Amino acid sequence: MRFIDGIYKPCVEKCKNIQDIPSVLSILDNGKAVLDDNRKCDRYIAFYGGHHFHKLYAAFASTNFRYTESKDIEIIDWGCGQGLATCVLIDYLIDNNINPNIVSVTLIEPSLIALNRGNNFTRQMLQSTSSSRCTIRKVNKYIDDLTANDLASEMGTIKVHLFSNIIDVEAFSLNDLHRLILASFQGSNRLICTSPDSNGKYRLDDFSDLFSQSCQLVNSASSDLPIYQEVFYFKNKQYERCRIGRCERQFTVNLT
């Protein structure tokens, strides 16, 4: 796995000898902090990157991405952090021999340091694909500060919206986000929303309900079941199979 070997494990190696784990988790605000230096970025990936990978990989399996074969797609990664969701999606497509033409990736993130790292990681992952001319757009904003002008899109493309560990964050308006998507993305839109546990379930359900009230949802999928996969366990300083909680909601809407 390119993400595991090229992004996750190098950060684990940098951080694996950390002793004061509670202090690190507090600084990272249990994964919710806006990261302001490279050390925190490395630690975020080391502590949470494996969970991100397995949770997203399981979610992507619920979307039949075969329909994107040889078609133009746009990836929009909301609250992207270091672009981990985009990187895992690219990895998933490569591993499953699915070859869309990724025409653009839009990375939206308030931390400029994390955003620049996400840009670099995305370029690193794209090197293994045929989408060499993909445009990467960096939008250095909080979600509530976005306008339609920040979100360039083409009507004829398939849009894949990634919301990884962001919809459950209560710092922004779901209603405003819903209106922004309706105003900015014509055509086919696949929205994939994941949360680390059931605590954010109501926000994912509320977000889905907003679209079901304004559009017809198709190819919906959901799961609240945990998965069991191997990640680095800092307490024991080794990779172990562990329980990864998750909440997943995804659906497609065609916007005119």
Rank of each mutant, 00 (worst) to 15 (best):
N189A: 15
K16A: 02
L25G: 01
R179A: 14
G31S: 02
K71P: 00
P10L: 03
T135H: 07
S70A: 07
A221T: 06
Q213L: 01
K159C: 00
N64F: 07
A221E: 15
L210R: 12
F47R: 06
S128V: 11
F47P: 02
L217C: 01
L162N: 00
E69I: 11
V253D: 00
C134D: 09
A85N: 05
F60W: 02
T86G: 02
Y57V: 00
I75Y: 01
S173D: 08
L93D: 04
H178V: 08
L255A: 09
N38I: 13
I4P: 01
Y92D: 01
I227V: 14
S214K: 03
V105C: 03
F172G: 09
I181S: 03
R39K: 09
I75T: 01
P100K: 07
T86S: 13
L180S: 07
S198G: 01
K201F: 07
E154W: 10
T135P: 02
F207E: 07
L174C: 01
L146K: 05
V12I: 11
G6D: 08
P226A: 14
Y92S: 01
L182A: 13
D197N: 13
V169D: 09
Y239E: 15
S220N: 11
D77K: 00
H52G: 08
N99I: 11
I158L: 13
I158W: 15
P100A: 07
Q216G: 12
I73E: 09
D197H: 07
S212I: 03
N17F: 15
V160W: 03
Q216L: 06
S132P: 06
L35Q: 06
G118E: 02
S195I: 01
C41P: 07
Q216D: 14
R39H: 13
H54M: 02
Y67R: 14
K16F: 02
R241K: 06
L84D: 15
A61H: 15
I113T: 12
A183G: 05
F211R: 00
S198I: 06
L180T: 12
F163E: 04
H161W: 05
Y92G: 02
V24W: 12
T68S: 15
I244E: 02
P22D: 14
H54Q: 00
V105K: 04
F251K: 04
S62Y: 14
C242D: 10
S222W: 12
E240W: 11
A221M: 11
V103R: 14
F3W: 12
A61Q: 11
A58T: 09
N149L: 14
R2I: 06
S23G: 03
L180E: 05
Q229M: 09
G6K: 11
K16D: 02
E230V: 11
N101M: 14
A61I: 04
N30D: 04
G156D: 07
I73Q: 09
T106M: 10
A152C: 09
S26Q: 13
R123T: 14
C11P: 04
I75D: 04
N219K: 12
L191T: 04
M1E: 13
D5W: 09
D42F: 08
A114Y: 03
L112T: 05
T252E: 07
I7N: 05
I90M: 09
S214V: 08
E240M: 12
C247M: 12
D77R: 00
K32Y: 05
